[in-house]
Design a protein around this nucleic acid. Structure first.
Lengths: 379, 379
DNA sequence: TTGTACGCGTTATCAA
DNA sequence: TTGATAACGCGTACAA
């Protein structure tokens, strides 16, 4: 019936080659609407809608006809229109704050976990990567508001405390990833950074080390002081371990690596040169641990023979390097999944006060500390 | 005027603590609409719309009043509604096909390039990561159709040829990343894989190597045969280099590493054991090159002393490993940017036939071949 | 079981 | 310079 409709909605490219025999749909130009389907099938729009949403109150014959027409016209309902009328966007936003040149592999892992869970829930994930130092984040948030995203996940290197505050004040459900920050509809997921760092330090201590360099990420500007970053947490774990073993914490053993390899390299080298009594390094990221290893070699010393090194994250490269890096494993993918689950929970259940998630961080013993027991991961 | 409107649209949380003094907006529940603004400002909706879109035909006084009301009510126009009426989604989709456990760091780099460019263009980027072996990709594509995405970028490990064909047939503008596949509104961006591979092989040859193991990614099933993958391109470059130097190509020197470290490790070890005349390995990904290095050590031989190794990609870890990996650098971020630019071009200019982009792939000499000339990247 | 009519929050057209 | 009103494509009472 009404064949002109078929004509109206031809495939975008009438098929210059044999390819288009497949007859696949879409094309962002102009597509058939639910009304076209209704007309072509000789029914009303609501009938089509009922078929589409499987109300199950349409006669088998009608349904069949409708579906057939949808097929023929390559009809795909507009999510845009549906979202508008449903007053729901089904969109989650992932905001990644990164520092230029710092492609932290860990983020990628988390992102994979996030996407798979988002998809499973029938949502869409919008990805935004911003430079941490870019002042235009307000613009980015405005776009979230306009897009009516239902939830935000925020991850990365030191987003300004103002960003966090604004997200919280926005009232949009949010889950911070590895950023301990809470609010009415805001929570976070993180690794057990304190325990992880403690375990790392204890591992070194158990091997006899007492003077352990601590390579921190950033030297926090004052605006962050109230913000308990992962950096702070790991520092606590480190100090706890020292205390538990009667070792006094020496602030002069702390240095700043800026989360980069080169930053850690020069910082550690400087420390090693000034302190000949140091026999170990604990860097709070694997990348910085790599830098530490280079620093040791710069001084013609050996890992782990002269200086033991422990990292944090367990990125893939940790098993590639030589000697393979002993480190604290963070479960990135799981972290991503958890973030999404928690976010969806906040969205669906506004009353319920959100709960922070803390994932275990386990020690992975490889070669960089010289303690080569029972590790199948060995190179 | 009309103060009840102010009451209706309070901030989500009336501010239990001092925080909300900031007065920041949004909240996905129920927000003021353009009509509310119009009412509160005592003007018509079209006036508000004109202010919003800066038509410049509104009296300064009115505009000021409207803006003030928008501010007070924390009004943010709905992108959903706008998109519906504009018949444009302003959404680009990135489809990443990955194999479980294979978190290729290179993808992350490309993604960063993509996001920054997408944002700059005022678009939104929806991210979807699918397992290559997942048969439900049709579902994923359906969601693209329903969301009326304006363009698709496709990247990753061996998406089935069917996926590519369907994307092409869909008529949605698309840019494949590192997948040489074209169509009416489909093109690709890639590195100069042939030249890169040739350069890698030539580097080895120039160092005196003649029996070079070639570590390929996958053994392609028949369905891919017509598809010129990067794998095929690199193989061509490899063979070209051999031919140019009068070395006969020996198919028995080719092995399959499945793009994983362990895969390459065992494959290369087997080859090395059976062929004592081999003095070099060219792996078409860095990760596989790492596996090759392990294989060499498994046999108590040394890199580069006994066996030289070259990789492809230049991921970050390439500079971390010891010896640092000599490899072919792909410009991931640039690749992402180029993909977006080309995609936007296809979208805005439907007539113009798209043009493939080939980015240079340069040799980065480090330590794994023993040729340590003029390289500042050295560890 | 099917159809009518209204609303979702915009922009665009036209008239005032 | 401003305002009414019709789209945009869909979901959903409510009526038939």
């Amino acid at each position: 019936m009404s064949d002109d409709v078929h004509d109206r909605w031809r495939r975008p490219e009438p098929g210059a080659d044999g390819e288009s025999g497949d007859g696949v749909p879409a094309g962002s130009i102009q597509r058939p609407t639910i009304r076209d389907i209704a007309r072509a099938a000789g029914v009303s729009v609501s009938t089509v809608s009922h078929v589409l949403n499987e109300y199950g109150d349409i006669s088998e014959e009608t349904e069949h006809r409708v579906r057939q027409v949808m097929e023929e016209l390559n009809y795909y309902p507009s999510a845009l229109a549906r979202r508008l009328v449903m007053k729901r966007s089904y969109v989650l936003q992932l905001l990644l704050f990164a520092v230029e040149g710092l492609h932290h592999p860990f983020f990628y892992e988390v992102t994979c976990g996030i996407t798979s869970e988002v998809e499973k829930a029938g949502y869409e994930l919008v990805l935004g990567v911003k430079d941490t130092r870019d002042r235009r984040w307000r613009e980015t948030l405005r776009r979230c508001y306009e897009a009516k995203v239902e939830g935000i996940m925020l991850m990365g290197t030191l987003p300004s405390a103002k960003v966090l505050a604004e997200v919280r004040a926005s009232g949009i459900p949010a889950v911070m990833i590895d950023i301990p920050f809470e609010g009415p509809r805001v929570t976070y997921v993180t690794s057990d950074n304190i325990a992880g760092a403690r375990r790392a330090a204890e591992h070194l201590i158990s091997l006899g080390h007492r003077n352990i360099i601590y390579v921190d990420g950033y030297d926090l500007p004052d605006e962050y002081t109230p913000l308990p970053t992962i950096s702070v947490a790991r520092r606590i774990g480190y100090e706890e371990a020292l205390r538990a073993h009667g070792i006094e914490f020496d602030p002069r053993l702390v240095c700043i690596g800026n989360y980069t390899q080169e930053g850690a390299r020069s910082a550690v080298r400087a420390k090693l040169e000034s302190r000949s009594d140091v026999t170990a390094v604990f860097a709070i990221s694997d990348v910085m641990a790599f830098g530490a290893m280079k620093a040791v070699r710069d001084l013609e010393r050996r890992v782990p023979g002269d200086v033991a090194v422990v990292g944090f994250d367990d990125i893939e490269a940790a098993s590639y390097v030589r000697p393979a890096l002993t480190t604290i494993k963070q479960q990135g993918e799981l972290m991503g999944r958890s973030a999404v689950c928690e976010l969806l929970r906040i969205i669906t259940n506004p009353k319920r006060s959100p709960k922070a998630t803390v994932l275990p961080a386990e020690l992975v013993v490889r070669e960089s500390c010289g303690a080569s027991r029972l590790s199948p991961q060995f190179a």
